[in-house]
Computed example of a mutant assay.
Amino acid sequence: MTALEIAVQDPAGAEIARAGGADRVELCSALGATGGLTPTLASVEAAVATGIEVHALVRTRPGGFVYDPAEIAVMAADIVHLVSAGAAGVVVGALHADGSVDRDATAVLTAAARRAGDVQVTFHRALDAAADPVDALQTLADLGVTRVLTSGGAQTAQDGLAVLSALVAADTGVQIMAGGGVRPDIIGALVDVGVDAVHLSAKTMVDDPGSAGPGGGSAVGLETTDPAIVAAARRATLMRRGSRP
């Protein structure tokens, strides 16, 4: 059975995902502008209250995935608070400058999650910046990571089908979740290569009811979760489930 995960930025998005039949959400902030940052504790609590399984992104800043010890310490502390707020999983990722998995940093983050509770750990699309995704996957398996989120190293998951297939074939015990430019119409192709889950933001832009002013950033609208896209993704997953033996 292929799970459906929706990336959301607020409790309203979590409720839309739940109503649309998603299995879980990845909750973050500033998704479009930065690729996602750690959400607030209040937003985690409110998203959990909708009744859907919430996995919280843990990322203190935009940019690359090479972190210093102080940044890792902050993320480890964030994990404890996020799990206390009700998160059923955390989404992390750390690399060395050569593109290999930062084993020590990932071990610290994974250990923080395990100490905080019985939660799942997803290694996010830092995997798509790894020098060797299949080798990285084995390292993550050794570290006890639950799943990876990846486009197969390509701009979109559709373009990364060959690498996604290789990750599935590696059979490390780590779940493979396809994400990156996923639309409902390509979910079937992703399911066909054997991924365990698909991940998409299902977002649309709506008018901002107020002005950002000179200090509010450069946003030209507000990102919101689109119920129609969530529903279409759910239908695509269910249709493919039914077509597989």
Rank of each mutant, 00 (worst) to 15 (best):
A219C: 06
D128F: 14
P11Y: 03
A113V: 05
V66C: 15
D159V: 03
R244Q: 13
R183H: 06
P184G: 01
V163C: 15
V80R: 15
H81V: 08
V163Q: 09
G153H: 02
V91C: 10
P184V: 12
G221I: 14
S84E: 13
S211R: 14
G160Q: 07
D78T: 00
G13Q: 08
A233M: 04
L82P: 09
G180K: 02
A105R: 00
D207T: 13
V134Q: 01
L161M: 11
R241H: 08
A22M: 04
A126E: 13
D208P: 01
V182S: 00
T237M: 05
R18F: 04
V90T: 04
G152R: 02
M177A: 10
A166L: 02
G173L: 02
V90P: 05
M239T: 12
R114M: 04
A178V: 02
G221R: 01
V198Q: 08
G213W: 08
T110R: 14
Q158D: 12
P209N: 10
A233P: 07
T146Y: 15
L149F: 13
L4D: 01
R61Y: 00
V8D: 05
P209K: 12
A162C: 05
L109G: 07
G32S: 07
L238D: 15
R147T: 00
I186A: 06
A87R: 09
H81I: 04
L149C: 10
P227S: 11
A85C: 07
D207A: 14
R18D: 05
R115W: 06
V220A: 13
I6T: 06
A126K: 03
T224I: 15
T60N: 15
I187K: 12
R241Q: 15
L95R: 03
A197E: 15
A113D: 07
A212P: 13
A189M: 11
M1P: 10
T146S: 14
C28F: 01
T50G: 02
D142W: 06
T204H: 07
A30T: 02
R183W: 05
A112D: 00
D142H: 12
Q120Y: 04
S201A: 11
T172R: 01
A178L: 07
V74H: 10
D208W: 04
S201I: 03
D142Y: 06
S29H: 06
A42E: 12
